[in-house]
Design a protein around this nucleic acid. Structure first.
Length: 935
RNA sequence: GCGGGUGUGGUGAAAUUGGUAGACACGCUGGAUUUAGGAUCCAGUGCCGCGAGGCGUGUGGGUUCGAGUCCCUCCACCCGCACCA
């Protein structure tokens, strides 16, 4: 009988459903294994063949681990809040929940069709109030926490309040902005005096009103409200986090982004910067992702140094990684936006400075970041700072190349040792004090750390390695500087001016935010999904009675960003229906970290960083027992599409075939790959595609056909090159699709999609089916047993190293060889069905059943390869001369190297090869190779 | 510029510890069979050469009895970061 994949797949899918075969429960008698796929956003387009690649790999591994006796958690759910559904709502007025539901149903259908072993009873959706109440709860906990730098962990805000009441800020060191008090209103600060520099006393704290205290605490909360420069995207009508902006454009949609000062909820992720870097070391992730995270966090060690501005009591703080070069400082540079600029600028320079500032502010983010060559620009403020060591006056300039957002927004310029400072000094004729022995820094800048310092008083003769700590010691003893670690990572904006996201459990009284703890706030209904006329977010449209909870004067109008719900979803899968906590400690202790996380590499600096941050936060409060979410991660490569093109002769409705396109002025247009078979265009289908092509004419090739051009590029709707899994499953079955996607090549590599190869894999499954047709209870012969055990070993080894493509090859070889050796005995076939089951579960179940297996193949234990069938009696040695293989020699496996050598040397072909030469050396690698060196 | 990665037949690729380069497939060529079907089977297929043989893993060098694999040089492409003080 033929391989009727449709009947087989339908039958077993139904059976598994009836048996609840994918249901998992906690079971302390078995070891656990947690395999997770990255959370999909259910888009309207459904899945294309690229999406399931990772899902198939994780499913294969989950099934393999189950065979090995692990209790495997393998869940799936949806990151179902997000922009596309909301954009659609804006256009059509349809509630995003409806769009989302429709899309999820489509996803679910596609996922089930491919036979994934997800435990659907654990499905989560971030837009479900039962889920997001816990996202809101975690936000609330972040709001009610501060970061204790000494203990290096988050603690309840009540601890900080207690400390403030008894000792003020004297005994505790909370993570905060270096000048946290500057964000407070003047009334709050007034009693503390002009000279206040952060040492808030208990007395002052206790004198504050409740409103004042709330303002002060805001400076220390892990989720806080603050005015800050944000990335505002007018086209999307919302702010974006740094990781959502690429080259000054929004990652989604590519719209321009501006800087704007806005009051926003912010997450103090910077408090975790150091742990987010150091804990990377123990993760089994690719170096490139770990490196990208280190880069993004951007740790640099150095010193903060204070410079006194002459004739004022103002002080300039700068951060430097090279405090050893302090004697080489000849000027200072501030960012044009630096708050001190207006205060210190000399009267004579006022106009020039203001002009420069204006010019800088008019430049877009993109221009500021300088796409290409950087021109050196700057402007003298006319003010001077005193060198902290020598007291010498240093001119203070402003310039674009100093960024307001990094460090303190000001630098001490050391032209001898810094490329940009050097160029700046050369451009504006500023001095370049030589500070490196034997280096003419007037000629070229010397940026390496290898030189010996000179003209640097007590630092003379020191290398940079010794000079840095020495310089810091001097600075500290003079009270003009401290050792400091600086990070590039900024706190993450957590507000979005959007409708389709988690509402904040926050209300305002006299504009003071208050956390609503006793009731869950759900999304209110609104009359439109657009901002109000006053520019308030859509939620501001909701009337008082539209809110299920309305407290204070008003509710918070912002919603949370997409990454809120996805930062902790892997925990909810462990305990998805818990109504009293986000995830019970008992469950999270059992399931623990994700053992294997599979997904794309596009979440490097967003999701992966944020979920690490939230995990550490939950760990600090002892609500979970681990501080990293994902122990091992594999990033699957993209499956690229093969786009087809037609060539329209400019200004006409004529299309010219690929071969003759050069004869005309043409425009290359994407054409739907559904009209193209083997690069030949179905011209009738093309005419019917769009009204404007109805009268299309074609300039054909010699064979009277229209040939399309092609290119391999990213699969996308707009390129009309999307291949969906649906019709492939229809034509070849889910098992074939699963095997084919695995067979394409290494999981982590990018590869073009090409359906031509699919027949080979389908054929393999048919052959496998045929092998089982002749199942008997007879005793298998030795040769067949060898084939089986070789296959068991290869498949097992390859699965362990996640080499899924060679798993398929190994099974192909095994089946081909067993067909040749007539190895159709149940004793061989049953283990073979188990080997097949991770990659082709439906067929494996059918064959397991046919070959007399008990129960479901899914619960059969993984076969072990037996050593005795792996070692052969005879070995075929390649015999090489000077490294080049000349002939084969079949020898007894028991022969020792000396015996092998003797046989090889006396072989007639050897004698022929070495004729006229002397043998210098003979190398025999037992079981491997014989190499004879002769000259 | 810095960091990470990848270069192997016509194509996707394999070679796990330095040990027969191209397994397994696709495609192609020839043949068989068949109710011309996107079916099946057999043989061949890295390149050059009729052949013996020679040459072959981006380039050039090195280590080694032996290098796709290790070391150095350069090139190409992909990804990330990018005036980061």
């Amino acid at each position: 009988m033929d391989y009727d994949f449709q009947a087989i797949e339908q039958r077993w899918k139904a059976q598994w459903k009836a048996d609840d075969a994918y249901r998992v429960d906690e079971d302390t008698t078995r070891p656990k294994f947690y395999v997770l796929d990255m959370f999909p956003y259910p888009s309207g387009a459904g899945l294309h063949v690229g999406h399931p690649l990772g899902y198939i790999a994780s499913d294969v591994f989950a099934r393999y681990k189950r065979h090995q006796g692990f209790n495997v958690l393998h869940p799936m759910g949806y990151d179902s809040f997000g922009l596309p559904a909301e954009q659609y709502a804006i256009q059509t007025g349809q509630h995003p929940a409806i769009t989302t539901e429709t899309n999820i149903n489509r996803y679910r259908e596609q996922l089930e069709q491919m036979g994934f072993c997800y435990d659907w009873t654990r499905e989560v959706r971030t837009s479900d109030p039962q889920y997001y109440r816990w996202t809101q709860w975690i936000f609330g906990q972040l709001f009610e926490s501060w970061y204790d730098m000494e203990a290096d962990k988050a603690r309840p805000i009540s601890d900080l309040v207690a400390a403030l009441e008894s000792d003020g800020l004297g005994q505790v060191e909370p993570a905060c902005d270096s000048k946290w008090w500057e964000t407070l209103s003047d009334e709050v600060r007034a009693p503390w005096g002009e000279e206040f520099a952060g040492k808030l006393s208990a007395k002052h704290w206790n004198q504050c009103s409740e409103a004042d205290k709330s303002q002060i605490l805001m400076a220390f909360r892990l989720a806080y409200l603050a005015d800050s420069e944000v990335n505002w995207c007018p086209a999307l009508g919302t702010v974006l986090a740094n990781d959502e902006v690429k080259d000054g454009l929004s990652e989604r949609g590519g719209h321009p982004v501006q800087r704007k000062r806005m009051r926003q909820w912010i997450m103090r992720i910077s408090a975790y910067a150091s742990r987010l870097i150091s804990d990377l070391d123990d993760l089994d992730w690719t170096d490139s992702i770990k490196e990208a995270q280190r880069n993004w966090i951007g740790q640099s060690q150095g010193a903060e140094v204070q410079f006194q501005v002459a004739e004022t009591n103002q002080q300039l703080d700068v951060f430097t990684t090279r405090p050893d070069t302090i004697y080489g400082v000849s000027f200072m540079v501030l960012a044009p936006e630096h708050p001190l600029v207006p205060e210190i600028t000399a009267a004579a320079q006022k106009d020039a400075v203001e002009q420069y500032q204006l010019a800088a502010s008019l430049k877009s983010e993109r221009e500021r970041q300088g796409a290409g060559e950087q021109k050196v620009t700057g402007c003298d403020t006319g003010a001077f700072a005193a060198h902290p060591m020598t007291g010498k006056p240093l001119p203070i300039w402003i310039a674009d190349y100093v960024l307001a957002g990094y460090g303190t927004g000001a630098i001490m310029a050391v032209p001898a040792g810094d490329e940009r400072d050097w160029k700046f000094a050369k451009t504006f004729g500023l001095p370049i004090p030589p500070i490196f022995e034997g280096k003419d820094t007037d000629e070229t800048v010397f940026t390496e750390k290898t030189a010996t310092l000179c003209n640097s008083e007590s630092l003379n003769g020191l290398s940079s390695q010794d000079g840095i700590p020495a310089a810091i010691a001097i600075l500290e003893s003079k009270g003009v500087g401290t050792k400091q670690i600086n990070y590039r990572l900024r706190d993450a904006v957590f507000s979005r001016q959007r409708y389709w996201g988690e509402p904040f459990p926050i209300c305002y009284e006299d504009e003071i935010p208050r956390l609503i703890k006793d009731k869950q706030v759900t999304l209110p209904k609104v009359d439109a999904y657009l901002p109000t006329e006053e520019g308030e977010p859509p939620l501001a449209r909701a009337q008082k009675e539209d809110w299920n909870v309305f407290e204070g004067d008003r509710m918070e109008y912002n919603t949370m960003p997409g990454w809120a719900g996805s930062s902790w979803y892997f925990l909810r899968y462990m305990d998805p229906h818990n109504n009293s906590t986000f995830c019970s400690r008992e469950k999270s202790d059992y399931w623990g970290q994700v053992d294997l996380y599979i997904g794309g590499a596009e979440h490097t600096t967003g999701h992966l960083l944020y979920s690490r941050f939230w995990t550490k936060f939950l760990f600090d409060h002892d609500w979970i027992g681990f501080n990293e979410p994902f122990k091992q991660m594999i990033n699957q490569g993209m499956i690229l599409g093969r786009s087809s093109f037609v060539y329209r002769i400019q200004g006409t409705e004529k299309f010219v075939t690929f071969e003759r396109r050069k004869e005309f002025q043409t425009q290359r247009l994407h054409v739907d790959i559904n009209f193209v078979e083997g690069d030949k265009l179905d011209t009738d289908a093309f005419r019917k595609w769009r009204p404007e092509y109805a009268n299309a004419e074609f300039v054909l090739g010699e064979d009277n056909t229209y040939t399309c051009g092609f290119e391999v590029e990213k699969m996308s709707k707009s390129k009309f090159n999307v291949q969906t899994p649906d019709d492939l499953v229809e034509r070849y079955g889910a098992d074939t699709l699963r095997c084919y996607e695995m067979f394409l090549g290494p999981l982590t590599q990018h590869k073009p999609w090409d359906t031509q190869g699919i027949s080979g894999v389908h054929n393999f499954l048919r052959k496998t089916h045929r092998l089982f047709e002749g199942a008997t209870d007879a005793k298998p012969d030795e040769a067949s047993l060898r084939i089986l055990h070789k296959t068991i070993k290869k498949v097992t080894d390859d699965l362990n190293r996640h080499a899924f493509n060679t798993v398929i090859s190994a099974l192909m070889i095994g089946v081909n060889e067993l067909l040749d050796s007539k190895g159709s005995q149940s004793e061989l076939l049953q283990p073979l069905a188990v080997l097949l089951s991770p990659v082709a579960p439906h067929l494996a179940e059918e064959l397991w059943d046919k070959s007399g297996g008990n129960g479901s193949v899914m619960d059969a234990s993984w076969p072990a390869s037996e050593e005795k069938w792996l070692t052969a009696d005879r070995i075929t040695y390649p015999v090489s001369f000077n490294g080049k293989v000349r002939f084969q020699l079949e020898l007894d496996a028991t022969m020792n190297p000396k015996e092998v050598e003797d046989v090889a040397l006396n072989h007639e072909k050897t004698i022929a090869q070495i004729e006229g030469k002397t043998i210098r050396k003979v190398i025999v690698v037992p079981g491997r190779i014989i190499n004879i060196v002769a000259v």
